[in-house]
Amino acid sequence: MKDIIKMIVVLTLICAASGLTLAAVYDVTKGPIEYARLKNVKEPAVKAVLSGYDNDPIKDRIQIPIGKDKKGKPVNLVVFPAKKGGKTFAVAFEGTGSGYGGNIGVMVGINLAKNDITGISIVGHSETPGLGARITETQFTDSFKGKSLAKELKTDQINAISGATFSTKGSVEAVNQARGLLEKYRDKMVQGG
């Protein structure tokens, strides 16, 4: 009997100590992990759409609460600001639209003063290879550059991909969604920096 109690006590203590230590390590690494994730996953896209900034857009990211998901968890829009001399002159964030094979995620860079697109980069899609997937080609993405966001963007303003109407529309939809977000949250995006 004494043996059994000793076993239980020792194992419990070891597990408790392990749990405590891991909780502490998790707490310490939580911030750096989020940063490292964004740095490796999002930075290439941010770099593709913004230029001429002297800050670290990943580090200066702004989280804007934009609603709740089905489970009631808050959803944040992550905005990457591009600054020069401490002033935000452009922002990049993601918009989504529905393409042919699923959602298309587009990182959109926007010049705040001119209210136009500095560039877009497709960050996630499941379009048909060789057809819809050509939305990732620069020939397509470059045609968004410099387009004004004063009005909704239309498909005839860009180099639509023949044979991939849905993918083209989905990308434009994603950009327009980003435009909507910009109008709604512009103050917060500028303020954040």
Binding site: L11, I14, L22, Y26, A36
Partner: peptide
């Protein structure tokens, strides 16, 4: 059982640290 708990804790630690500093 005790060894496995000890080893597993250190492994999770390595995993978290590596994610944070050597992604």
């Amino acid at each position: 059982a005790a060894y496995i708990v000890i080893i597993a804790s250190f492994v999770v630690m390595v995993e978290l640290l590596m994610q944070a500093y050597a992604y």
